[in-house]
Simulated scan of single mutants.
Amino acid sequence: MSAPDLREVSRTGLVTAALRAAETRRADRLYADPYAEHLAGRDGIALAGELQEFFARSGEVPRLTAFNAIRTRFFDDRLLASARAGVRQAVICASGMDTRAYRLPWPPGARVYELDYPEVLAAKHEALTGLGAAPRCDGHRLVGADLAAPGWGERLVEAGYAPGEPSVWILEGLLYYLDEPDVRTLLGRIAALTAPGATVAANVAAASTLRAPALQPMLRVFRDWGAPWVFGVDDPAALWREYGFAAEVVRPGEPGAHFGRWSEADATASLTVRLLFVDGTRSP
């Protein structure tokens, strides 16, 4: 069974899979994703190498790989903390090559909903089926959707999601690819689909990141791939509050977002200091 090809799956999703495969091979890995290498394929590994060439020139390669490992582990832990607290609905937006439904130890009754373009979900499902992989949660639903277009909320509910029940939402590696109006529309739709106490966790770029001279070569790589970074926010907690979520903001290297891999000093010196994690809870 061959890995999904580049015509069907976004470059960024394949790069993320390649980086997760590299992390899985480490003796001190922060998580294990046994499916990532297959999903990345030759294309994903080549693209990750292209991106790492930029970071090599800037001295950032260790921080690139560390950031992706920390980001994955941060959201893994957030999902499992919610699940262990009794939340039985997890929604992964723009899931790409994400395999959390297959690799995390979900408690009984957990339901995982993946939202992404239908062709992305189909390619991943075909590849994982070819490996004989099976979800580890009791309910796994793939919901084909363009998150910048209307209608996906209705399809999510049709797939079994219950808006009145507790839920946790993950927006990983998504928001900086959306225009600000689309980001705001997305957060508004999520707010309308969630009950008090729901969690919405995301990573965002500070607005200053998009203007930082040191990051322009990297941002050009993403533009050349057809995935430019267009959204940044310097005060994500204020943005979350507009939609009814009280949010904590943490940067890689700070307590709860380093996992022994990235120190505060590394974060201060790194280009990626301007990348932030947001963990919001829906107010009553």
Rank of each mutant, 00 (worst) to 15 (best):
M1I: 05
M1W: 12
A3Y: 02
E8H: 14
T16K: 03
T16S: 14
T16Q: 06
T16P: 04
A17P: 00
R26A: 10
R29Y: 09
Y31N: 08
Y35P: 00
G44C: 06
A46M: 11
Q52T: 11
F54Q: 09
F54R: 13
A56F: 13
R63E: 15
T65G: 09
A69K: 02
R71V: 03
L79G: 11
L80V: 05
A81M: 07
I92H: 11
C93N: 09
S95A: 15
D98L: 05
T99M: 02
R100Y: 00
A101D: 01
P107M: 08
E114F: 03
K124M: 00
G130A: 04
G130M: 02
G132V: 03
R136A: 09
G139S: 00
G139W: 00
H140A: 11
A145K: 12
A145C: 13
L147R: 11
G153V: 09
E154H: 05
L156Y: 12
E158Y: 09
P163C: 05
P166A: 04
W169C: 00
L171G: 08
L171Y: 03
V183I: 05
R184K: 12
G188C: 00
I190M: 12
I190P: 02
A191V: 00
A191H: 12
L193T: 06
V204R: 11
A207G: 07
T209A: 15
L210A: 03
V221H: 13
F222G: 04
D224W: 07
D224K: 11
W225E: 06
A227N: 12
V233A: 10
D235Y: 06
A237L: 00
R241E: 12
E242L: 11
Y243H: 12
F245T: 03
A247Q: 01
R251F: 08
P252F: 01
G256A: 02
G260T: 05
R261P: 03
A269N: 12
T272F: 15
V278G: 01
S283A: 13
S283C: 13
